[in-house]
């Protein structure tokens, strides 16, 4: 870039920075306000819109933790089980599928791959109604099975697509070399491809976790009894059973609900953002 060009772009920088800082405040304010409200005494939450308080308290967390009848820890554990197993299933099934699509040629492959992309676009409700009827008929309502099993069958086309993109970016020579050395096809996949895929698998795992952890619709239809509730259901139960003025504990439990996602995001932010960027472009 030439000197003049740089000079031309230098001036709007200040303007850009000011804009970005203002936008940052607007963007982050709801979250900061939620955290602030969660440690304010009841009478102060709405009397001042500032997130800060002179007399912080943890009472809201104490009240909220038991507020839904079942301790909030039960919801966190249930969510952990559902989302954790969904991650395991999704990583295994989507990786196998993606490798099959990325590295093998067979008849009808383009049609099948188009089917993968179509499942990304298909509203899940049309599936869920029949799936619900099916699971109801075999007595699996109010269990975690309907929430976990589908992830072991690679129904999330989004991640298949993400991994196909990534595998296509790997040099095929390494796999050829392993094949020449007498490795079986599964050995090539397991010993050569999977280790190279680690970054994409981390992205898949994190995004699956976040998605399943926050999924509301399917958990709402499948889980009925409070001791099986996951975090979104527990939170909803809590706001339904709380008077509208008890906002401190509600904000406290909302904060607790978001902690796992925020922590994962802070640890793996690069992977997550690169993964999202990859879906729109190339791997």
């Amino acid at each position: 870039m030439t000197r003049t060009l740089r000079a031309r772009r230098a001036k709007p920088r200040v303007f850009t920075y000011v804009m970005m800082v203002v936008l940052t405040i607007i963007t982050i304010y709801p979250v900061v306000w939620m955290l602030g409200g969660s440690i304010k005494p009841a009478d102060e939450i709405f009397s001042n819109p500032s997130p800060f308080t002179a007399s912080p308290t943890l009472q809201n967390y104490v009240d909220g933790w038991a507020g839904a009848g079942v301790p909030f820890s039960v919801f966190l554990i249930n969510s952990g089980i559902v989302a954790g197993l969904a991650v395991v299933g999704n990583v295994i099934a989507c990786t196998l599928t993606a490798y099959g699509f990325a590295r093998f040629d067979f008849r009808g492959k383009n049609v099948l791959f188009a089917l993968v992309l179509l499942t990304v676009m298909l509203p899940k409700h049309v599936r869920l109604i029949s799936e619900y009827i099916g699971f109801a008929n075999i007595g699996l309502i109010d269990t975690f099975v309907p929430l976990i099993l589908p992830h072991f069958l690679a129904i999330d086309g989004f991640f298949i697509f993400l991994l196909v993109q990534f595998i296509r970016g790997l040099p095929p020579e390494l796999e050829e070399a392993a094949r020449v050395d007498g490795c079986t096809e599964f050995g090539v996949f397991w010993r050569v491809v999977v280790p190279l895929l680690t970054p994409a698998l981390v992205t898949t795992a994190i995004l699956t976790f976040v998605q399943v952890y926050q999924d509301f619709f399917s958990q709402l239809i499948y889980l009925n009894s409070p001791e099986n509730y996951t975090v979104p259901l527990g939170l909803r139960q809590f706001i339904d059973s709380t008077s509208s003025s008890a906002w401190g504990p509600v904000l406290a439990m909302s904060s607790v609900a978001l902690v796992p996602v925020v922590v994962l995001f802070l640890i793996f932010q690069r992977r997550i953002i690169d993964g999202i960027a990859t879906t729109g472009l190339k791997g």
Binding site: L96, T97, G100, R127, S130, E131
Partner: peptide, 30 residues
């Protein structure tokens, strides 16, 4: 090699049949 590729797709085949295509048809019927 193509047949081996199809083996890698086995879980997906089960999923797309049991959890996408069959439910779609069933929903249309219901």
């Amino acid at each position: 090699r193509g047949r081996i590729g199809l083996l890698f797709l086995a879980p997906w085949f089960v999923g797309i049949l049991l959890l996408v295509i069959a439910p779609l048809i069933a929903s249309a019927y219901f």
